[in-house]
Design a protein around this nucleic acid. Structure first.
Length: 570
RNA sequence: CGGGGCAUAGCGCAGCCUGGUAGCGCGCCUGCCUUGGGAGCAGGAAGUCGGAGGUUCGAAUCCUCCUGUCCCGACCA
């Protein structure tokens, strides 16, 4: 493609809206433009990069035996009501009515549609297993879209769904996808980690996320320094601590005027935050619960959700806390509280701790579970910390930030039961299909790749994801010999299957170099005066600046060789 | 949904406090010049100052409401 005829609106200055590096560079390099919050147009270069990801995904999915199809984006509400998700999914599901007043929604995911297809078309165990996928635009009305392609409302996703006759077969399908995902992300040149994950609103029995390691990630990963344990911190189990066997001391009420925050109370009473227990009030499905965690810990809401079996938990605000308990925030405690009490296992092992007295300006000392209050339930409720031991081997843990680019779930029969997707097994019995689902954020991968591969001059694409493999600069537009050589090189490369962007613009050399760097194209060929003077053409690699000077006859051969090598090891 | 910004030419911003002819840089157009790391000179086009209402002789500027957008938070009482 000729640069002069392609829309690549690069910017010298960074648009004010961009915070993270991938967003900034995608805008500056003219890959994307924003239409409205969280919704972007992919310009030719951006789309080319997306297509590269799609191609890798497609090849690996097909190789794994999955079949591509394409499902509708607009879906009837009825279908979602069958699984109960029309009510449960929340405001992320964009709902609307068509002209006949039929309730509809934009598909954020396609379990309902695919299960509907499966129940209609799959009759026999002979039709199983089957794995179907699509690459499609999804819409999720995110609370807060941000960071460009990283968390958009409209985005491109590959979603696959497997159907099996029994649980063992479903596990096998899951494992195939797990391995396929590793290949896909490796080919994309990403540094990633599969981690144990919470299965979230999709539901299901177990799941893994594929995380690209990057500081701008929105998730926190827990990684063991010794064994191969890795998990999303939402999921990471905290080991139960040893029980403190100290004798119980007498309960004591202490006046703590105006001391509401953990820090203030600790300073005032001269104790450590680890000797205090805080009482956090949550709203859950219309009710209220209180959660006890140590003063220096954090409630892990995903764990709380899972233990309560609810779709959503939300911290109560000051007024809601007062309405539910009659106590102003800051002085809440478990002794005599009227709401259901969930106790973190760490607190259950503590003795003689400090809590709010359920009375303004008072706290209590030497509080003990069992004597002073009872727990409705004791469980692992807090966020894991770097001081905790590895849940698997006990070694030390590190926490890292990651971007979720893929997620695999073993769903079981939840959807097939609620939607009555059955097949007739070899024994003549109707059975529910066992499902799995597997997502990849295609557009997000482009952003993640840029987060991992860039420098002060711009993007640095791995060969596999680059919009084009080569950028060819003609620096001698007014020189007939140079221009003729560049033109012929352009044609020859095209005919040999090299993807090339030919910078034939009437611009100064510096300008072209800057744009070539910004676009992150792996190989740059410069045809200029050195051709007429020394008979050579320059070939430079974006990633490390390696430069070679070659004769026009040798250059394509060398380019093909480099492309081969680069694609070879991702 | 809560808090905080921001909204002035395609992009980045100044002007607003203290009301009185709308500005700068980049980009864009024309010409000259230049051509291996975002050149130089000269000329030029381009803005309902986000929208609606109000105050005023007069509003980009002050007031009210609305909209859009970005950031933080929506977990630590």
């Amino acid at each position: 493609m000729r640069y002069s005829q392609t829309l690549i609106p690069t910017l010298k200055e960074t648009p004010a809206e961009a915070e993270v590096v991938s967003h900034r560079l995608l805008l500056r390099a003219g890959f994307i433009r924003k239409l409205t919050a969280g919704i972007y147009t992919y310009l030719p270069m951006g789309l080319a990069a997306v297509r590269k990801v799609e191609q890798i995904v497609r090849e690996e999915m097909n190789r794994a035996g999955a079949q591509e199809l394409l499902m509708p984006m607009v879906q009837p509400a009825d279908l979602w009501s069958e699984t109960g998700r029309y009510e449960k999914y929340g405001p992320e599901l964009l709902r609307f009515h068509d002209r006949h007043g039929r309730e509809s929604c934009l598909g954020p995911t396609h379990e309902e549609v695919i299960t509907d297809l499966a129940r209609r078309e799959i009759r026999s165990y002979r039709d199983l297993p089957i794995n179907m996928y699509q690459i499609q635009t999804k819409f999720r009305d995110e609370i807060r879209p941000r960071f460009g392609l990283m968390r958009g409302r409209e985005f491109i996703m590959k979603d696959a769904y497997s159907f099996d006759a029994d649980d063992d077969a479903a596990t096998k399908s899951y494992e195939i996808m797990y391995e396929t995902y590793k290949k896909i992300f490796s080919r994309c040149g990403l540094e990633f980690r599969p981690v144990e994950a919470d299965s979230g609103s999709i539901g299901g029995s177990f799941s893994h996320e594929f995380m690209v390691l990057a500081d701008t990630g929105e998730d926190t990963l827990v990684i063991c320094s010794s064994c191969d344990y890795a998990a999303n911190s939402e999921k990471a189990a905290v080991a139960a601590p040893a029980v403190d066997e100290s004798p119980m001391q007498d309960l004591e009420k202490v006046e703590t005027p105006g001391k509401r925050k953990v820090n203030a109370v600790c300073e005032f009473m001269d104790i450590k935050a680890s000797e205090l227990v805080k009482t956090m009030v949550y709203k859950v499905d219309g009710g209220t619960v209180a959660v006890l965690v140590r003063g220096d810990r954090e409630v892990q809401e995903v764990k709380l959700k899972n233990i309560l079996g609810v779709a959503d938990v939300e911290m109560a605000d000051d007024k809601e806390v007062y309405d539910a308990t009659g106590v102003p925030t800051g002085y809440l405690g478990p002794v005599g509280i009227k709401v259901k009490l969930l106790v973190d296992q760490e607190v259950a092992a503590m003795k003689n701790f400090v809590v709010g007295a359920n009375e303004k300006n008072f706290h209590m000392r030497n509080v003990n579970i069992g004597r002073d209050f009872e727990a409705a339930e004791v469980a692992d409720l807090r966020q894991i910390s770097p001081e905790d031991p590895c849940p698997s081997c006990g070694a030390t843990l590190t926490l890292k930030e990651g971007i979720e680019v893929g997620h695999v779930f073993k769903l079981g029969t939840g959807y097939s039961e609620s939607m009555n997707a059955v097949f007739q097994d070899a024994d003549g019995q109707d059975k529910h299909m066992v499902m799995g689902c597997y997502g990849i954020g295609v557009s997000r991968i482009v952003a993640a790749a840029i987060e991992q591969n860039h420098d002060e001059n711009g993007m640095i694409f791995p060969m596999a994801l680059a919009p084009v493999q080569v950028v060819l600069l003609n620096l001698g537009l007014k020189d007939a010999e140079i221009t003729a050589a560049a033109e012929s090189l352009y044609k020859d490369m095209q005919s040999q299957g090299v993807e090339v962007l030919f910078d034939d613009r009437d611009e100064r050399p510096g300008f072209k170099f800057k744009d070539a760097d910004l676009l992150g194209i792996p190989l740059r060929i410069t045809v200029g005066k050195r051709l007429t003077k020394d008979g050579v053409i320059e070939l430079r690699q974006r990633k490390d600046g390696t430069t070679e000077e070659l004769s026009p006859e040798k250059i394509i051969e060398r380019v093909l060789e480099l492309i081969q090598t680069e694609m070879g090891h991702g």
